[in-house]
């Protein structure tokens, strides 16, 4: 894995007098799935927004393929926890919106891509539904599909499943992992949920309390491999790793999660 696809170099962020991100260095490889784990309010969202170009670092820089990232663009797609799909558009229109500003695709290609992504998230039957007529989990799938359709190379997800029930969440995790393997997108996934992080990620980055500082990194793929199925969740290695990470969080971040 080339380790220098996405690089944080001494990145800090301060809101007024409050330091939110302490100097952070981090490298993420192309196609890698990294989970950001840390106590509430520690600065994970802020870090992610800086990658997306929605905030700028106070100092240091973020490099994508050795070039500093600028303002937001299609290469880095965001999936938010709430307000993730546009209520005035149907599911299909929401997905098509991801390609609205692409001039590298013909209208036919765009139509085909909507169909492809509808199938990818299994919502063909709901193509013409408005977001308020589908479940929260479906809405998040729509948001993911829209970002994929935009052709984003980096997926930035901020607790995308945070508001969902455990069962839906589990199903979407499997699905996300499958999609990610299929599309090979570099992914940063912010979550509070240790099991979610262990199940999804190739690597977990654990942050301290505010100001965020990397306190530990856990190579999940080295332990669990690349294939993740629901059975894995009940396996011994999964369970052990989950406990290790929990332990890390308790002792390294000073936060009893």
């Amino acid at each position: 894995m080339s380790d220098d696809y996405l690089r944080f170099e001494g990145v800090t962020k301060q809101f007024g007098p409050v330091p939110v991100v302490a100097p952070t260095d981090l490298s993420i490889g192309r196609g890698e799935f990294v989970a950001f784990l840390g106590p509430s309010g520690c600065g994970k969202t802020t870090l992610m927004r800086m990658v997306g170009g929605l905030d700028t670092p106070t100092s240091g820089r973020i490099l994508l393929e050795a070039r500093p990232v600028g303002g937001p663009d299609r290469r880095r797609g965001m999936v938010f926890q709430s307000y993730s799909s546009f209520p005035w558009q149907t599911v299909a229109e929401n997905i098509a919106f991801g390609m609205r500003y692409r001039d590298d695709m013909s209208p036919q290609e765009k139509t085909a891509s909507v169909a492809h992504h509808l199938a990818l998230i299994g919502l063909e039957a709901f193509a013409d539904h408005y977001p308020n007529r589908i479940s929260g989990g479906m809405r998040q799938r729509v948001a993911i599909a829209r970002t994929l359709a935009a052709g984003s190379e980096v997926l930035l997800m901020d607790e995308p499943f945070g508001a969902l029930d455990a069962l839906t969440r589990e199903r979407l995790q499997v699905e996300l992992r499958r999609i990610q393997a299929h599309e090979a997108k570099t992914t940063i996934f912010v979550t509070h949920d240790v099991e979610e992080a262990v199940f999804l990620a190739d690597r977990i980055v654990v942050f301290s309390q505010r100001p965020a500082r990397v306190v530990a990194q856990v190579d999940v793929t080295a332990v669990l491999g690349v294939e993740r199925s629901l059975d894995l969740r009940e396996s011994r290695p999964f369970f052990d790793l989950r406990n290790d990470v929990l332990h890390l969080i308790r002792h390294e971040t000073g936060d009893p999660q």
Binding site: G52, G53, L54, G71, P72, D73, R74, R76, G77, M78, F80, S82, Y83, S84, F86, P87, W88, F97, G98, R100, Y101, R102, A143, R146, T147, A150, S152, L156
Partner: peptide, 29 residues
């Protein structure tokens, strides 16, 4: 209009002008 809508459109490659007409105007309809 929720700022998330605006930011989503920005990360999908929309210019300020496009976001104004495609998102802000639509969302406030």
């Amino acid at each position: 209009v929720p700022h998330e809508y605006v930011e989503i459109a920005r990360t999908l490659g929309g210019s300020s002008r496009a976001v104004l007409t495609d998102v802000v105007f639509r969302a406030m309809g």
